[in-house]
C-alpha cells in the first residue's frame, strides 16, 4: 500500500507522537499518563511508519530488535528494584533524589521503573505488530 497522503502525514505526525509519548511518560508521575500509555503511543508511531512505508523502514527506524527492547525495559525496571537493596533497604523501596530537576520535577527509582515500562511496552507491542505483518 503506497499512499502519498499517509506517508506525508506520517512524516509530520511522527515527531509529534514521539514527543507526546515522552510527555505522557513524565506526566505519569503525578497525573494520568505513565510508562504504559507513553509506550503505546511511541509504538503506534513506529507502527505508522510500517503502514506508510513498509516493514523494513519501520525496523530501520526502530534501530533495535524489539525483543532487545523488551529485555532492556525489564532490566531498567528490575534495576529500579535492586538499587534500594544496595542502599540497604527492602527490594523495590522508592528512593528519591532531593534535588529538583527542571523537566522531570523529581528524580528517583520510580522514574527508572516507569522508563522501563515505557521501553518494555514499545518492545512488546512492536514484537507483536512486526510478527503479524510478517505473516
Amino acid at each position: 500500500m503506497n499512499s502519498l497522503i499517509l506517508s506525508t502525514a506520517t512524516r509530520l505526525l511522527l515527531p509529534l507522537m514521539l514527543l507526546y509519548s515522552v510527555f505522557l511518560l513524565i506526566r505519569g508521575h503525578n497525573e494520568p499518563g505513565g510508562g504504559f500509555v507513553g509506550g503505546l503511543v511511541a509504538a503506534s508511531a513506529i507502527a505508522l511508519i510500517k503502514f506508510s512505508s513498509g516493514l523494513e523502514r519501520a525496523r530501520a527506524a526502530l534501530r533495535f530488535d524489539p525483543i532487545t527492547l523488551v529485555g532492556t525495559g525489564l532490566l531498567f525496571a528490575f534495576a529500579s528494584g535492586l538499587l534500594p537493596l544496595v542502599a540497604g533497604m527492602p527490594f523495590l523501596t522508592a528512593l528519591w533524589w532531593d534535588q529538583k530537576i527542571p523537566v522531570l520535577l523529581k528524580a528517583g527509582t520510580p522514574v527508572l521503573f516507569d522508563l522501563g515500562v515505557y521501553v518494555l511496552v514499545v518492545g512488546v507491542v512492536l514484537t507483536m505488530i512486526f510478527a503479524l505483518s510478517e505473516e
Binding site: D65, I67, T68, V70, G71, T72, L74, L75, F78, F91
Partner: peptide, 16 residues
Amino acid sequence: VIIPLFTAILALLCWR
C-alpha cells in the same frame, strides 16, 4: 524471585 527473573531478562537480551 529475583534470580530467575534476572536470568530470564539476561536470556531475553541474548535472544539470538
